[in-house]
Design a protein around this nucleic acid. Structure first.
Lengths: 203, 203, 203, 203
DNA sequence: CATGAATGAGAATTCATTCAT
DNA sequence: TATGAATGAATTCTCATTCAT
């Protein structure tokens, strides 16, 4: 499945990938058959296989694309001298991606992760994305933030805060009033509250 | 599937549900057939349908049970006068459930939510669970915490922090070193860091 | 696919195996689909799989049965003190099987042989059959026959003479006049000519 | 597919046939798709059908070619005055063909024979090949060999001896030690033993 | 002459589910 | 109550073949 694609072919492949992405997140990967993807783009089931090797490759391609887009968005940020500012920028960008491309996000971060024998994740881009976050967290710790946290801990807490928001958002669990633009409200939360969930109990 | 169950019937239904849950969690919902559930409890495939309407109802039932268990765990907590302490207790209990019953959790909080026409979630227990959290958050706000946050906001941030941790944990994305007990490490994080992601930038 | 079969089940499995055998030799193994086998016995395609694990197992079963039948026929012979007489008896029995069960024979001796890593043939019965022939040939050599031949050679020549007859017979290449009973004529040839193709040229 | 071929067309058809033969022999007729044949000669699948009517015709053509090659090899022999010598020469040539072109041989002599209404075999060359053998046998009988055999019988025995060797050889059933050159060993057997399987029982 | 696009038919399986007994 | 038998519909994927260009 690499050949040299003509523009038309690329376009058709795109069509298929998009249809698949939509269906996958609407109904779950395993409830979507190649047939249904074909039907959605008005192709015969057999034709799908001229543009996509198989279901596996289709999923991999979507995931890889997702990581690439996310990576691009995160990379275009300037590195702010204030590591917390930078980390927040990253979070904003990450969430923006999650909201704009929630179908991708679903495929990228909700499926059980595959780890190859050497301990790495075999989908291109995954490690790169997490690496950026990790570096930013590391800088923040060096600058005295996240008192008492290891890099792992700080990274995990930061990541999971944003991931939690996106995950609930994607599955429709944002507790905001129906009628409002969920996405917009969601995205306002991030810069306002990221890394600032402070509940100052007397302890 | 609403008949009046005799105790024996209830017990058998129980057996089936348990088998289903175990299989689902071990192999993923869509990789488990009704046949395999039947085999696991030594019933004929047909008999399953005496106790369970179909796969869908089976899943719904499991979800409902999940909410019930979670509700029980959260309810048995004493309400600490310090609302932050209580909220943290709730978080610990919630996460404990998520780790112990991650297979339930997956079914309960990762699938797209179904909302009925009147705006409620038709699965029994769901609203109750969230209600408890909401109340606790409300108390905390009244006590002066979460400065500047609406109840919705504070509730969403708190929930998604924990949900994010669990979600990443369930899909295998905890960035801790292999070999450690992921579950244990994960659970240590919660009381240590919940509601305390503070990054004091100079701003 | 072992379970304990009830008599009815055994019978149905038999039905399927027989249908498969007929189709296989009439049209070639790879031109016969499970669907067609199902159709031939008036079952739904799915039902086939209650009685047979898959196409592979079906073929293996048929082959194994074939070797068993052949082995039985060859085993019931008394060992004649004259090794040539005995060898001829074996040949007659072997050919009788080949003619009576030519569909089996086709599956057993015309498909490319599978040899496992340890150099043996993994289908039960194959080695046993050849072993009997080999022993008989060995006795004959010890008794002074097959002058100048190794056991391998003598065994190969004897075997291939009969196999050649059967192979041509099965594929319809017996050059006897149409209308005669090909099978009968064929079988007469064996005792008359086996091991006696003597063309004493003056050289 | 009878058009008048230009030399270029003939050449291309040749290319396709050769590719097909190679693939067929390497992987078995039913494991080779028209696509793969096309790919092997760097044609588009569609183009194949300009030079070959369909898979069936392709096979028929290969068979016909096979008979032609075999016929050529057998024809180039001088007719030895000793009919047994000549018959042996034919056998050697026939087996040489079978070993060199075993893929052809398989197609030519293992598939069920098609006989047309007038009792002849509709594939060109088949009758001619057998005719040569038949004649040679006839001469041998006239010269006093094959005592007591009809032409049919003698012809059938001779043919099936060689065919048996080739058939077992092709399906991998030569009982010679692995590591030796099976083909070479096989071919040595023919002149050594053809028409000389003598087992002189005391009887 | 040549090809890319396209497809209907079919391959081996599997599954949720029903039904007669 | 319980089950074995049965199946229609679905799954992923391949293939021989046609046709418009």
């Amino acid at each position: 499945m690499k050949k040299d694609w003509t523009p038309e072919q690329t376009e058709k492949r795109r069509l298929i990938l998009d249809a698949a992405r939509e269906l996958f997140s609407k109904e779950g990967v395993s409830n979507v058959s190649m047939r249904r993807i074909a039907a959605k783009v008005n192709y015969s089931p057999a034709l799908i296989y001229r543009y996509v090797k198989n279901k596996e490759e289709l999923l991999d391609q979507l995931r890889t694309e997702g990581y690439q887009i996310l990576l691009n968005r995160m990379s275009r940020l300037e590195v702010d001298p204030d590591p917390i500012k930078y980390l927040t920028d990253l979070a904003v960008e990450y969430s923006g991606f999650g909201v704009d491309y929630w179908e991708y996000y679903d495929l990228m971060f909700h499926m059980p992760i595959q780890i190859s024998e050497d301990g790495t994740v075999p989908v291109k881009g995954y490690e790169a994305v997490l690496g950026m976050v990790r570096n930013a967290v590391e800088q923040a710790i060096k600058a005295g933030h996240f008192a008492g946290c290891s890099v792992d801990e700080a990274m995990f807490m930061s990541w999971s805060q944003i991931h939690g928001l996106l995950s609930l958002y994607i599955s429709g669990r944002t507790p905001f009033h129906i009628g409002e633009d969920r996405a917009k409200v969601m995205l306002q939360e991030i810069p306002r509250h990221f890394l600032r969930i402070v509940a100052t109990g007397k302890k």
